[in-house]
Design a protein around this nucleic acid. Structure first.
Lengths: 315, 315
DNA sequence: CTCATTTATACTCAAAGTGAGCATAAGTGA
DNA sequence: TCACTTATGCTCACTTTGAGTATAAATGAG
């Protein structure tokens, strides 16, 4: 008989306001953060998506809307703590399928063991809205440098991933960056997975973002990267915005997700060329200055012809 | 005890020359075409990729180079013929993970039950190099029309997928098109899966491309779509070309993959702005007219900075 | 040997798109 | 009423794109 196999489903459920991108985070018995997840039971579930919707509902009271498959992880060089397998047979091998879900509102989930968390808590080096975080130059770069030693290839990977040495910062490479930190033993999970709790001489792991259970932070990184990429060629932001919004609100939401400031005028110009949004004539109650016009997403546009993304002109 | 789960791995191995994109196709006991595939045995394999490489080697003698995960299918509304599960326990549920592999040469695989096949045999409506295939207007459109009946949504999906009624043809939507044909009961697999061999009144299924075992044609469609998309923003074509090539050869290879003619001058101009290739000074032995300069892919370029794709200016 | 044919490569020009600055409009609160 | 804030409009130089025209270097038929 072969080793038993279990398929786990993991959901990264994302919401956003103009300030912060949020992920729906659950907590295990020890209070460690993780993603909503569960086993796929082929007897009870006809499709992955249905299974996913069902127990995301159960675990968080949450009704999923837009859903998309991310990636299937099957390589457990990094061992899973037995505890996370829960009802799986002992020695079972877990294959985890990650999903991304988007939702326009942060519904109240306080009744459940779940919270909405700023995703930058887990990836503090990813937010470049106020310039490149000093964390990168002060902590990450030196730590990776010492890990790389003289290895040409490691140095190259590190510079490419973190936009060092004149390389551009590419926001959708979230996963590469996290994996690098994991490989270098800097992510909290790496220390845990080695199960040898070596007295870390360097900076405390949480400097490198809050760790999550199992490989959930990897899945979250995948989700962020995918969303950041997709926002540019599919109108997915509108799955995250309320029905009506001002252009500034839209822009700031995109900026929050990308972790990158955008050029205001060019954002607007490209946006109305795209005909993705439509002004409603109504003005919004001012948030300080001149009132802004309210817009809505023209869902019709998308169905006819090429579905375009929102423009992202660098500032 | 829950229903047993099996994870299957499927490989779409692609090669191309200037004329034809090929997929590596195996044949089952009945001679039906399929993809190289096998079970993932967690005891014997540490990672999906290793497992994949191992028995692609076994089944086809083929050494995989570039590999990328495509999608994981778990929804079996469409039932699998028991025969394809082979050594799986009866009633097992199969989860299949698709992979895409690229290779620059069609190595000799005649010793194995495998052949290189023009992928357009399975998707004859996908090749637009010599204009839109008449098959679409003559056969597909009417068949889908009658399937849609009056349903607004179906009509819309059909027009969008196949670029009818003034909509543009979007080459990377290969999967959507195949799924539509499947749903409409026009793909051979749909007839088979219903297991009620209803006497098809309409055109014979093979007009809609050669069927494959299990859901392999779906996986192949996914691969084609993904490759077509990726070619535009990552230099993946060069995984398919020989070490040196002329610009025309490169262009024709890209055209073969996209199923779309490109504008020659603009292709060249954009290509040398991208600095992806480098002239070698040497000329190629002419294929008719003036000899062309030989080029090679500058792998170095890719490692530094943003990895760009090959330009694809429509002709 | 020359000329039509084939393919490669070079140049040009208008139209559209981008990056980035400057100017004006319409609110709020001291 | 005036400083401040945010929204929105306009302009300009520069790059990129679509698409046409011209020239160069081989082949092969007569």
């Amino acid at each position: 008989m072969t080793t038993p196999l279990a398929v786990g489903l993991n959901a990264v459920i994302v919401a956003a306001d103009t300030e912060t991108p949020y992920a729906l985070i659950t907590q295990n018995a020890h209070g460690s953060p993780g993603l909503p997840h569960g086993r796929f039971d082929p007897a009870g579930h006809r499709t992955f998506e249905r299974a996913l919707r069902e127990w995301v509902q159960e675990q968080t009271g949450f009704e999923l809307g837009y859903v998309e498959q991310l990636y299937t992880f099957g390589d457990y060089g990094r061992e899973l703590p037995q505890a996370d397998l829960e009802d799986a047979p002992p020695n079972a091998r877990l294959v985890s399928v990650g999903y991304l879900g988007l939702t326009p509102e942060r519904t109240d989930i306080s009744a459940f063991r779940a919270v909405w968390r700023d995703w930058y808590r887990f990836f503090p080096w990813e937010d470049h809205r106020k310039g490149r975080p000093t964390l990168i130059a002060d902590t990450i770069a030196p730590a990776l440098e010492s890990w790389a030693g003289g290895d040409e290839q490691r140095i190259d990977r590190m510079r490419l991933a973190f936009g060092l040495h004149g390389r551009p910062w590419i926001e959708e490479n979230t996963l590469e960056r996290y994996e690098l930190l994991y490989e270098a033993g800097l992510a909290g999970e790496a220390v845990r997975d080695r199960s040898a709790p070596e007295s870390a001489a360097g900076p405390s792991p949480s400097v490198f973002g809050e760790p999550m259970i199992s490989d959930h932070r990897r899945i979250l990184a995948t989700a962020i990267g995918r969303l950041r990429g997709k926002i540019k060629y599919r109108p997915v932001v509108f799955e995250l915005t309320p029905e009506t919004f001002t252009l500034s609100e839209l822009q700031r939401t995109v900026e929050a997700l990308l972790g990158q400031p955008l050029h205001k005028q060019n954002f607007r110009r490209a946006l109305d060329r795209s005909a993705l949004v439509e002004g409603l004539g109504r003005q919004s109650t001012a948030t300080g200055g001149r009132p802004a016009e309210l817009f809505r997403f023209r869902r019709e546009t998308v169905r006819r012809g090429i579905a375009l993304g929102v423009p992202t002109p660098r500032a």
